[in-house]
Structures are given as C-alpha cells and as structure tokens.
Design a protein around this nucleic acid. Sequence first.
DNA 1: AATGAATGAGTCTTCATTCAT
DNA 2: GATGAATGAAGACTCATTCAT
Lengths: 191, 191, 191, 191
Amino acid sequence: MSTDQARPLRADAARNRARLLDVAAQVFADRGVSVTTEEIAKAAGVGVGTLFRHFPTKEALLEAVLLRRLETLSTEIARLLAEQDPAAAFFATFTLVIDQSAGKNEYARALAAAGIDVHQSLQEPAQVLRARLTEVLTGAQQAGAVRADLGVPELQALLVGTADMVERLSADPAGRERIFSVIFNGLRPSR
Amino acid sequence: MSTDQARPLRADAARNRARLLDVAAQVFADRGVSVTTEEIAKAAGVGVGTLFRHFPTKEALLEAVLLRRLETLSTEIARLLAEQDPAAAFFATFTLVIDQSAGKNEYARALAAAGIDVHQSLQEPAQVLRARLTEVLTGAQQAGAVRADLGVPELQALLVGTADMVERLSADPAGRERIFSVIFNGLRPSR
Amino acid sequence: MSTDQARPLRADAARNRARLLDVAAQVFADRGVSVTTEEIAKAAGVGVGTLFRHFPTKEALLEAVLLRRLETLSTEIARLLAEQDPAAAFFATFTLVIDQSAGKNEYARALAAAGIDVHQSLQEPAQVLRARLTEVLTGAQQAGAVRADLGVPELQALLVGTADMVERLSADPAGRERIFSVIFNGLRPSR
Amino acid sequence: MSTDQARPLRADAARNRARLLDVAAQVFADRGVSVTTEEIAKAAGVGVGTLFRHFPTKEALLEAVLLRRLETLSTEIARLLAEQDPAAAFFATFTLVIDQSAGKNEYARALAAAGIDVHQSLQEPAQVLRARLTEVLTGAQQAGAVRADLGVPELQALLVGTADMVERLSADPAGRERIFSVIFNGLRPSR
DNA sequence: AATGAATGAGTCTTCATTCAT
DNA sequence: GATGAATGAAGACTCATTCAT
C-alpha cells in the first residue's frame, strides 16, 4: 500500500535495496547530495552496478530516500495525533521533525519542504504529509495553544527553519532548548 | 586594509574584478554554487581566463563573495546601531539580514553562518560581524527588549533560520509578516 | 559431426539452446549485434544465466548463429543443385541468399562473407559453403549461363552486395526486381 | 555557405577541428562507429575535452563526418557533370563513389544511403546529393547509356552495394574490375 | 539446470584549471 | 592583461560476465 514492490524481490536483493536506502539517506545527509554514486555504493558494501540496478538514476535514489522520509514523518505524526491531545501533539510534532532532521542538514529542508516543487513521485506523499500537518495545526489552534493566523505553509517553513537553527547549534544542547523556547513562545496566541 | 591587493590594479582590471564579484554574487544566489565558472565569466562579460586571473580557484571566488557580504553586513549593522536606539537597531538588524538574504537562498546561510567553520580568509570579517551582533544583542537585552538568555550563536542561528523560513514563503508577503511576528514575539522577554 | 556437444543435453536444455539460437538470430538481425545479452535472454524467455550457460560469451552466441546460417545455406544450395539444371540452380541460389538475408541487414554480410577473416569455429563450414558455391558457379559457367571470368570470391562479393542493395530497397518490391535484373544481366556472358 | 562556422575559429582551433574531422573519418571507417571518443581524440593528438568542445556529442561528430562526405560527393559529382558528357559522367560517378568508399566500409553505406532516415542535420545535404544523382542518372539515360527503368533510389542502392562488393575484394585489383564490368554491363539498356 | 542479482571495467560527458595566442 | 581553446581527472551510467540462491 505504501511501499510498492512490483514483484517481491529476492531476500538478498531486498536486503541490498534497503541497505542502499539506509546508507544513502545517511551519506546524503552527512555529505550532501553531491557524494558520488561510487561512494554510496561502497558505503553500502555493494558495487555501483547494484546501486543502479535498484535505482535507475542517482536522482531516483535521492527521491526514494526522500519518499521514505516523507512517509515516515506522516506515519509518526499520525501516531502522535492518536496518542496525545491536540496541543501536546503539535509541540511533539515540532520536536520530532527537528530532532529527526538533526545531522541531516543537507536534505532535511528538501524533505520538510514538502510544500514546494517536489518531484512527480513525491507529490502524493507530500500531500499526505500536508494533510497530517493540517490536522496537527488546526487541532492545536482550536485548543487555543497556537496562534490562529498561521497556516500550513508557515508551519512548514517554521519546521524547516527551526531544524536549521537547531542544526547550527548542534554543539550546544542548551542552545537548542533556547531556540525551542523562542519558537514555542512565538507560536502561542498573542495574549 | 581589508582587501589585500599587492599592487594597485589597472583601472580596467579593477573594474573586471568588481564586476566578477557582483555577477558571481548574483549568479551563485540565483542558481547555486554549482554554476560553472564558464557561466559566471560569460555573465560578467569576460573570458574564464580573466576570472581565474582574479580568483585563483572557484572557491576563492566564492569566498570573496562571502567576504564582501560579511563586510557589508557589518557596516550596515554599525550604521543601524549609530542611527537608532538599541531595541530598534536589533529588530532592524533582523529585518536587514533577512531581506538581504531574500532570493539568495543558496548561500544566504553560508554567509550568515559566520559562526562556524568559515574558511581561513573569512575568519577575521566573521569575527567583526560577531562583534557587531554582540553589540546589537546586548544593547537590546539591556533595553529589556529581548530575552536575556540568548547569546550570539543563538542569534546567528535565528537569523539564518528565519531567513530560510521567509525564503520559503517568498510567494506570500503576508506569510513573511506572520513569520516575523512569531519570531519577534518569541524573542521578547518571557513576561 | 558438425555440432560438437560433449554429452547430449537434457531435453529442456536442448530446447533452450535452440530457442536462444532462433531468437538471437532474429534479434541480431532486427536490431544489430549491439543488443544486450539481457534483451536476447528476455526475448528467448530465459534468464541471462541460461544464455551464458549455453554460450560462454556473447561472441560465441553470434558465432553459433552464423554457423547455423552457413550450414543452412550450404544445405539448401546442395538441394538446389540436385533439383535443377546448373543455370537454374545458379540463379536460384542468388535469389535464395538475397531473400534469406532480407531483413537481416546487420549480419547478412558477416554471414555471406564466409570468405574473409571468419572466426576459427566458422572456418570449416565456410569452406563447405565455398565448395557449394564453386559447384553452382562452375556449373552455370559451363552451361554458358554466366561469365567465365568470375571466381567464387567475386560471387560472394556479388551475393553480399546484392543483398545489401535489395535490403536498401525493401520498401519497393519493384525496385528489388530491377536490381535483380541489373545484376543477372551483368552476369551473363558478354555476347 | 556550405561550411557553417558561426564565428571564425582561431587558427589553432580550426586546425584541431579539421584534424578531428579527418581523423574521426578515418577511424570510424577503419574500426567502426564503436571506437571510443578517447581513441579518436588520442589519434587526433588532442584530449577528449577538445573533441567535446568541437562536437558536443559523439553522435554530433559522426554526423559532421557524414555531412562533410555528403558535401564532398555532391561537389565532385557536380564537377564530373560539368567536365564530361552525360554517359561518361555517370560511369565516372560510379567509380568515384566506389573508390572513395574504399577502406571506409563501416560508414560508406551510411553515407551513400543518403536516401534513408538520415539525421536532421543531414537532410539538406542528402537532398542536394540526391539532386546531383538525379542529374547524372537522367543525363545518362537520355543519352541511352543506362537502362531507363532505374530511379535514383536504385542508383543509390547500386552504388552502396557495389562499394561493398569492391571492398570485399580489396585484396584483388582484377576482381574489382570484374565487379565493375558486371555492374556496368547490367546497367546498359537491354539491347 | 535455471535464475536474475551483483559486479566493475569501460563509455560518454562535464568542468575547474592551465596556457598558447 | 585578456581571451577562450585545450586538458584530463572524475562522475553517472551500461553491460558482458559471474555466482549465490
């Protein structure tokens, strides 16, 4: 339903594909999207040929990585919504997104930027993520926990921007808390 | 003093250098640091050879662009400090940095990130900028306009992150205002 | 005698080998020798592994295809010789070779070129084909139906070249006839 | 007019371009279109970069080679038409095309095949060549030197096919003459 | 035996940098 | 000093061949 394997891959092939996805996510995050396919393959312990067998182009690999991330986020946000009251879910979402983006500075924003110019294959999962964010946001606003004038686009911008801030202060845990404090404070209704 | 030309350039050479800097700033901003040197040279109306005569490597050109930006920021912040009261200067600085970064998303953050891992040649101007930011920040804090628990690193992170947020909402001017509102609100002392 | 199978293949293996040979002949003909082994295998409904089990290299497969073609030609020419008078057999051979090459432009000539630089394994069947061609040619010459100054090498060149001509006019059946007419006319003794 | 240099290349660049064209023509002819760009560049005594500066893709290089050949043929045929009577011009054209194709077996036919599926950029020169061939053919037919039932497509096929035949007999000069004799004989009006 | 996933050398092409004009 | 042609290392991608399942 969410993951779409045309024909069930052989066990080893599936393992390689998953491994490539994991490794690529990490490597893209650590060193930027300009890492060579060769390096990704080596990091995954396979030859380039294998990488290209699973993902026809480098871009397709990047998309697959982003796709998985969007799906993960959607799922986890849904869980937060189910488990907590609206206000708590909102702030938990914030924390979740920011913390998951930590150390992934390169594409964190590409990801969260689910609002803009996403590639074809990401349209739908991006749409799903936006739907989740709409739920969290309006829930928190109705609960009076968040300013009523904000929309989902602003929320997305805030998430990505805050992730960026926190990323820059990664050396200082206390700084991270102060950033959260500023943002959360600013999000509260004016009075 | 700050720019270190061994011997004064011939008039035309100086003009070429300045033009390259301007054009490179624009082109890097518009299309990312991956534009080719050939394209930058063409946009500046010179041959690649000329580009490399003035800047020994592509990276040196990028640094020169960043350097100039850091210097400009420092100068303008100093002016704001001279012209306005501390609190006003603080918020004006915020607006200034964010607006100048608009449309420059690619290296905006690289720039403002004057705090971290800046290349050799940028150490000193980054230091100068930090000094200016220290002035604005402490001034505003002493005036009671900004939370006292923030330091310059947090300010830098906030500036860059906010620029990022605004950049993402570039299509929606009202969204920009709402972001500013959230951030400025969050920056105010707790009570 | 001519095909050298160490031990008799299992029924299914033999079927696969035959199928690969047929399909490869078709595919090489239609799309050139640069088709990938993967595509040939797929067209034959087997995995690449099977292809390589039967033919150790791609080149070996191509050779096997050519080999079979040489053998077929030899056999059919022998039949023509047995069934018709020398002159008729000669022109029938011409038509046969040309028509069998139709649509096989890619390797038609490689095949018919049994005279030149044929790979090791094709030496003997090429020799056999030449022997057949010698029979048809000398028979027709003795019958006074064909110029006496031509040798087998010229005949081979004429066959391949004419096949090429006809191939180029494949869209126009009448053109094909005119080419045959020119060549047959030219082959007749001077007076 | 026929060669289209946008801006006049520097002397050395023009020399390299010409050299690449010459060398590529030779190398493609000798070893097929599958020779690597690296080898062509090396044979021309330049780096690959230079090859790609002059010809944006390998295919563009091949096209340029073919283009030049088509143009040369057209020019030379025009000259033959101007210098000789129709019948002589016809047979001289035949000899010219065949001899120029000698040793160029790989693309000789691609060239002469100016009739079929030629790439965009070759459309017009191919059209020009066809016009020349039309002149030679109809001239010779009106002079009663060549069968009246042949059209330009057949002539093209005959040229390419004959070049092919001669190519195959390259080791035997007398064989070449015999082929010419057969073809020329066959081309004459029936009585 | 058959399968198809894995491999990696080899191919085309790009682009920062050098150098002859 | 300026120019842009030349260079070649490096990168994305292909495909014959091998090998685990």
